[in-house]
Design a protein around this nucleic acid. Structure first.
Length: 472
DNA sequence: CTCCCTTTGAAGGCC
DNA sequence: GGCCTTCAAAGGGAG
């Protein structure tokens, strides 16, 4: 049977390839068309044979065979033609590319050639962003891929920011704090971007990764069709680029550590990850936090230099009827069930706070003493001199709920309203960092230390009068 | 598709 | 000056 098919193949080849070539000299155009048509039939048939009897399989090849068993049950469902995987074009032999050709480089060894889609279960090619969950692409890899905005990058002389798949989702994507914390800003903001002509920044497209055009946010390099835009107000907002806020210290810390926590905990929900990161942030030493505060300070300085007229207010959502929507939003938020992700942290807490069952060890003196990161008895303050919020494990909002105005507080307050076991009141920020240090000085300065001492004194002198995060 | 969740910090507005 | 609100990142989940 197989020989028969091979014979048919040979006959087809001679009939549709060689034979027309002979006549090509006579009727060139007709023969060219004929050849093209027959190429299709020939290779389709060859594909079918390849599917049925993988005669041409090279040992070790990850081609068509592995995911498609030639069992009759698989092929019996309708057309016995090529049941390719979703990534194989029926005319694969005719098309000069495949997924392999599009892989942005040698995939990491830990990645199998095919990754099962968690939703569909279908093998798929890993997205570039999945190759490295945190740093989408290495600078070299980025440079090897021509981004739709590459003209701009070349114009700017920067090979530069890794472009996330969703566009400029990250304002400052390529954090390289692992390699060198001090070089972060300089690596992301080239000198010519630090001192640009400020008047042209907002009009020239995307001079800075903090600028996010809503259109680009959806699909980089593509202009959305007008039909997509239905709201006139939206259309107006799409016109002007969105300059994002500079990242604060904690955000910078999160950006760096998120991938690590995800890898350790095998968690993907950002809400849970952020809870863990918040705890780890508190368990950081003063020096470690100071690095991020300094980075954030530079970020703000740079941002203010790049966009002198920018205000954080510009990014506030435009509320049509603010007076009407506001109370409703608050009520909705406060009635929402708070999901406690913290139990999952037991699996992968930070080393500084994972002593025994103490999930929040830094918050309690005993655990602070037991913490390996605690060099002194006052670890809970020394190790977190800049952490102005101490949020122990339990929530006491039912016992410490404040009436009236406090109920309309931020989302974090409402979101922390859970009915779990109460233990300790939540300490909110007694001294805002901005109040302590408006000049953005570095944390270890004497002034800041004095402020921290006052912060510490406040905590010690008023242990029970602490403001709790309350909602109703 | 949009918003929420969850964290901390910064900034702006209001009183 | 204190308090409140919003947004910055992230990605799963819900509507």
């Amino acid at each position: 049977m197989r020989l028969l098919h091979l014979l048919v193949l040979i006959v087809l080849f001679y009939l549709f390839m060689i034979f027309p070539l002979i006549f090509m000299t006579i009727f060139p155009l007709v023969c060219v068309w004929f050849c093209c048509l027959n190429f299709f039939f020939f290779f389709s048939y060859a594909q079918y044979l390849q599917m049925k009897w993988p005669l041409l399989d090279v040992p070790g090849s990850t081609g068509l065979k592995d995911s498609r068993s030639p069992t009759p049950g698989h092929l019996s469902n309708k057309v016995p033609v090529v049941q390719h995987g979703h990534h194989v074009h029926p005319l694969t032999p005719l098309i000069t590319y495949s997924n392999d050709h599009f892989s942005p480089g040698t995939p990491p060894s830990h990645l199998s050639p095919e990754i099962l889609d968690p939703k569909t279960g279908i093998p798929r090619t890993p997205h570039p962003s999945e190759l490295s969950p945190y740093y989408p692409l290495s600078p070299g890899a980025v440079g090897s891929i021509a981004h739709p905005l590459s003209w701009f990058m070349q114009q700017q002389g920067q090979p530069m920011y890794s472009i996330p798949p969703g566009g400029f989702r990250h304002p400052y994507p390529a954090l390289t704090m692992n390699a060198s914390m001090s070089s972060l800003v300089s690596s992301r903001f080239s000198p010519h971007m630090v001192t640009p002509p400020p008047h042209s920044l907002h009009q020239t497209g995307i001079p800075h990764p903090a600028i996010v055009s809503p259109a680009i946010k959806q699909e980089p390099g593509k202009i959305p069709p007008p039909l997509v835009i239905t709201d006139g107000r939206k259309k107006e907002e799409d016109k002007k680029p969105h300059i994002k806020k500079p990242l604060n210290a904690f955000m910078l810390y999160m950006k760096e550590m998120r991938a690590k926590v995800v890898a350790e905990c095998t968690l993907k929900e950002s809400a849970a990850i952020n809870q863990i990161l918040g705890r780890r942030w508190h368990s950081l030493s003063r020096e470690e936090q100071a690095k991020y505060y300094e980075l954030a300070r530079k970020e703000r300085q740079l941002h203010s230099q790049l966009y002198p007229g920018w205000s954080a207010r510009d990014n506030y959502r435009k509320r049509d009827n603010k007076a009407d929507s506001k109370p409703e939003d608050i009520s909705i938020r406060n009635t929402k069930q708070c999901v406690q992700y913290l139990p999952s942290e037991k699996m992968c807490d930070s080393p500084a706070s994972s002593q025994g069952s103490m999930l929040d060890s830094p918050a309690t003196p005993s655990a602070a003493l037991a913490s390996p990161a605690a060099p002194a008895a006052t670890h809970s303050e020394q190790a977190q001199p800049l952490s102005l919020t101490t949020k122990p494990e339990g929530r006491m909002h039912h016992h410490f709920s404040l009436p009236g105005k406090a109920s309309g507080s931020s989302s974090s307050s409402s979101s922390s309203s859970s009915s779990h076991q109460p233990s300790t009141p939540i300490l909110t920020r007694p001294i805002p960092f901005t109040s302590l240090n408006n000049s953005m000085l570095s944390p270890p300065s004497p002034f800041h230390q004095a402020a921290l001492h006052s912060h510490h004194a406040l905590f010690q002198s008023q242990p029970l009068s602490l403001v709790t995060k309350t909602t109703e």
